[in-house]
Simulated assay, not measured.
Amino acid sequence: MTNSPEVATKIDMASMPVQLPTFPAEPVAARARFFNSGNAFNVKLPAVPAAAFREEAARALVATTTALLACDQSEVIDTPFPATTPLMLARYATIAPKDTLATDFAATGVIWYVIRGSGTTRAGAEVFDWAAGDVFLTPGGPDTSLASGLEGAVLWLVSNEPQLAFDHLVPAQGPAAAVETAHYPATEIARQLQRVVDAAQNDTTSGIALIFSSARQEASRNIMPSLTLSLNTVPAREHRRAHRHNSAAITLILKGESAYSMVGGLRCDWSPFATLVTPATEPHSHHNESDERAMFLIVQDGGLHYHARTMGFAFLEATGVAE
């Protein structure tokens, strides 16, 4: 009687290491790598945390020199480049009186909000003046500079630099650029917002918000191909009902002394010009306990999700029901 041969134990597909070419004939073949249906889809990346950048805002508001202060979470989310969320980077820009900030952002475009002061922007051949409360959009690249007035200036800006850095891309310049300069003066913003406030709402309306776009992006209703910008409001003693979406959101608090957000079940109190991060898919709501309308700017990577048909917006509570 002979012994049965031992049956070798097979390795589980999910435990297999990367598979390398067995006999590559040339360097290009040696670069090939293989995975399988058990180990290729379980990539685990650090979660994007909800965050509040208050110290950066405070430093910007008292700064006397020209500088950029990044709201950087790259160490937490493990990216090799500065990032507030995987695809967006927010900063504060401070410009000393009568000084110039020259920029060279590797981004499709840059969204700016003027917190304080006044000045002039030169973007390629275009020149325009700005003041507190203005929003403007500039293309990325080296052809943009901001010169401040006698009192200096503080601005908030968001770009899609991490999106381009992920693919090692360089933005197109000149006529080939995907973004053209656009200026939204504070007086025009107030006028257009009032038209929205005066309009009727229904159960599907996502709050009271003014959405920024441009002539080139009018069809998509975005401000940039990949980014959206909105001026959101919450009326006095009301709240914006809980909801979720697949885009990440970066928020600048403009007005809301007694306001707060609930993000993933945690309360985040507002403070002037703080930058808040709402991670993608996280349930959240906004609450105003004051007697004045609360206001906040929100930049999202929503353009990408609209294009991919993956925005996934959904309300999580009925109309008028408080959280």
Rank of each mutant, 00 (worst) to 15 (best):
T2C: 10
K10E: 14
A14Q: 12
S15P: 06
L20H: 14
P21Q: 11
T22F: 12
A29C: 13
A30Q: 14
F34V: 13
F34H: 12
F34E: 10
N42L: 13
K44R: 13
E56G: 07
A63E: 08
T64G: 12
T66F: 09
Q73K: 05
S74N: 09
A83H: 00
L89C: 04
A93V: 08
A93E: 06
I95E: 01
T120L: 08
A125Y: 07
D129C: 07
A132Y: 02
T138C: 08
A147T: 15
G152F: 02
V154E: 03
W156K: 02
S159I: 05
P162Y: 00
Q163V: 11
Q163F: 15
Q173G: 10
V179I: 13
T181D: 00
A182K: 07
A182W: 02
E188K: 08
I189Q: 00
A190G: 04
R195Y: 00
Q201A: 12
L210D: 00
I211G: 09
R216V: 13
S220L: 10
I223C: 01
P225N: 10
L227T: 05
L231N: 01
A236F: 06
H239Q: 13
H243E: 09
N246M: 10
A248Q: 03
G256P: 01
E257Q: 13
S258C: 08
G265F: 01
W270L: 02
P272A: 09
A274I: 03
P279E: 02
E282L: 14
S285R: 03
H287W: 11
N288P: 06
A294L: 12
A294G: 10
F296K: 01
Q300Y: 05
V321A: 12
A322S: 14
A322Y: 14
